[in-house]
């Protein structure tokens, strides 16, 4: 009973409470750069998911073997391996996608979410919880990327996953597919989430306040 709660908690941590994009604001570089379209965002998210889950699993399996003096070097080697694998896989699946993502696939190596998870979580937990946590984190990252990518694609090109939403006469907002657009949309989402969190807090505080009054 308790174990399932823990597992569930590990899983949801990254999706909501510690969302890497909207709460921890980590991994911004690839996020701002590749979220020009929803497809790019999803591919990037899935690539990160693969790397994060695999590297978390391997790091966690080897956690007792690795002396702490060389742990960062070990983690980086492991992460770089899986990034290379993802790099080949994306090339094999679609060259167009590979070119659209450019150097940012290789740059997953330095994505702080992955090293951060390896250091803070995977190196201290057994493989199964570590991987579940990694899956949750990556899903949170995918959600963040997709939130950015979809808005930027809708405004910047009038399409979603390449499907036209407004007809051929749509006026694209060029700024949205340029780098400033990424900052604007990210700022907008952060504003929205902090507004929501604050509103939730206020209603909760109001409810407990009423409760004490009645008691």
């Amino acid at each position: 009973m308790n174990a399932t709660v823990d597992i569930w908690d590990e899983f949801t941590e990254g999706i909501w409470r510690q969302n890497p994009v909207f709460v921890m604001v980590l991994g911004l570089c690839p996020m701002l750069a590749v979220t020009v379209s929803a497809v790019n965002a999803l591919t990037m998210g899935l690539a990160t998911l693969f790397v994060l889950v695999c590297s978390s699993g391997l790091v966690s399996m080897m956690r007792k073997l690795v002396p702490k003096e060389v742990r960062i070097a070990t983690y980086i080697v492991i992460i770089a391996t899986f990034v290379t694998v993802v790099d080949y896989i994306i090339q094999a699946v679609s060259l167009a996608l590979y070119e659209a993502l450019g150097a940012f696939i290789q740059l997953i190596v330095v994505n702080c979410i992955i090293l951060g998870r390896a250091e803070a979580h995977a190196s201290k937990n057994p493989p199964i919880p570590a991987m579940i946590n990694a899956v949750g984190m990556s899903i949170g990252f995918v959600i963040g990327l997709f939130a950015l990518g979809s808005v930027r694609e809708i405004l910047g090109a009038g399409t979603l996953f390449g499907v036209s939403l407004f007809g051929s006469n749509f006026q694209p907002w060029v700024i949205m597919v340029l780098p400033p657009g990424g900052f604007f949309v990210l700022g907008g989402w952060l504003l929205f989430f902090s507004w929501w969190a604050r509103r939730k807090q206020r209603t909760q505080a109001g409810r407990t306040g009423e409760g004490t009054q009645h008691a």
């Binding site: 080897m62 073997l65 060389v70 070097a73 080697v77 492991i78 391996t81 899986f82 694998v85």
Partner: peptide, 14 residues
């Protein structure tokens, strides 16, 4: 030993 092991595993994967 650890670095060697990790490198070997990673090399095989790549």
């Amino acid at each position: 030993r650890t670095l060697g092991l990790v490198s070997a595993i990673c090399g095989v994967i790549i």
